[in-house]
Design a protein around this nucleic acid. Structure first.
Length: 320
DNA sequence: TTCCGACAGTGGGGTCGCAAT
DNA sequence: ATTGCGACCCCACTATCGGAA
């Protein structure tokens, strides 16, 4: 079951949850031994081998019952004073795709299964029951007794604005609203609504990458940078979506007119060989979800040029 | 006739593993 | 030994087309 993107709905018919930044997974628990547990990714691939401690935890905790759970595999960042632990997709990537992770890796990047729905229980399908009833069944499983497992909290009596604030304050991806009376359905539905938290950045264009396929001959992506206090230009990412076809052509023409031979960036730029450089003069705005650990934009999309802004006005926004 | 939803195709940051160089 | 590439994860967005309203 997948959510539709939109504003956070309000009203008594909706229950709000926080949206976790991790990897979606279904857990099928068929017995009390770890090999009786199967974790399946969103594209139906078995990923149990990558998270053996989760299989063991589920077998140990609910193995006496037959259960199918929907949830998220999450890696928490290392908490430091002033920065409590929060879900880190960057860290989870160190575990994804690694079959039979070493004890050292499991210790360095511990993962948690955050359950938020139950699809079958004791051999009986419960997907047709309303969310409210499934939620009660989920809470009755006692998953939180195990340190590697948790039940995703829902925000009782919290309005949409406060829910978004809460999500932001805890480093969550956004808010997920679910119709209380709706059954669990596969595919994208209107009864789940996701509202991600967006950030925006104004940055200078230091180059561009030519487009491929249908964008052949036009612009594929712009290369953005932020000036440091000493005037050096730090690369922060490629942005290649959010343009219309006409917009790509227009921007390419402007950048070609400003072409220079050498990179204006003072930090490394990926795919440097295919990059075209330009004078770092034009300021644009991009929307993105978060900074990566390397200081790059994650899920960036182009909003447009900011002719009202000058390069020397730019400042790096607070990272988090 | 118009609108909407699903899908294909473009683009991004990452990781890992294998084949080619 | 290094590099390139595809397959995976996460995803945003535009353009298109067929069916519903």
């Amino acid at each position: 079951m997948l959510a539709t993107a939109g504003e956070v709905p309000s009203g008594p018919g909706w229950a709000l949850e926080l949206k976790w930044d991790g990897m979606r997974a279904l857990a099928y628990v068929e017995g009390a031994k770890p090999d009786a547990v199967t974790l399946v990714s969103r594209n139906q691939r078995a990923v149990t081998g990558s998270y053996p401690e989760l299989a063991a935890a589920l077998a140990e905790t609910v193995g006496t019952r037959q259960v199918a759970l929907d949830g998220e595999v999450v890696a928490l960042s290392v908490p430091t004073p002033g920065a409590p632990a929060r879900p880190s997709f960057d860290r989870l990537q160190l575990r994804m795709g690694v079959v039979k992770p070493s004890a050292a890796l499991r210790a360095e990047v511990p993962v948690t299964f955050v359950a938020f729905d139950v699809l079958a229980l004791d051999g009986e399908t419960v997907a047709d029951r309303p969310w409210e009833e499934r939620r009660r069944l989920l809470e009755g499983l006692g998953l939180d007794a195990h340190p590697r497992l948790t039940t995703s909290p829902w925000l009782e009596g919290v309005d949409p604005a406060a829910a978004l604030e809460l999500a932001e304050a805890h480093g969550m991806e956004g808010v997920l609203a679910k119709r209380r009376d709706a059954p669990y359905r596969s595919g994208r539905t209107q009864t789940w609504v996701k509202t991600p938290i967006w950030r925006t950045v104004e940055a200078v264009i230091g180059g561009w990458a030519p487009g491929r396929g249908r964008n052949h001959g036009s612009l594929g992506a712009v290369l953005l940078g932020l000036p440091e206090t000493d005037g050096r230009l730090r690369y922060i990412g490629h942005v290649g979506t959010g343009f219309t076809h006409a917009g790509r052509d227009r921007l390419r023409d402007q950048l070609v007119a400003d072409a220079v031979d050498d990179s204006p960036f003072t930090t490394a730029v990926p795919e440097e060989r295919s990059a075209r450089w330009c004078r770092p003069r034009l300021v644009g705005e991009a929307r993105f979800r978060s900074w990566t650990d390397d200081g790059h934009l994650r899920h960036p999309s182009w909003r447009g040029l900011r002719p009202d802004r000058d390069v020397d006005e730019l400042r790096a926004p607070a990272r988090s």
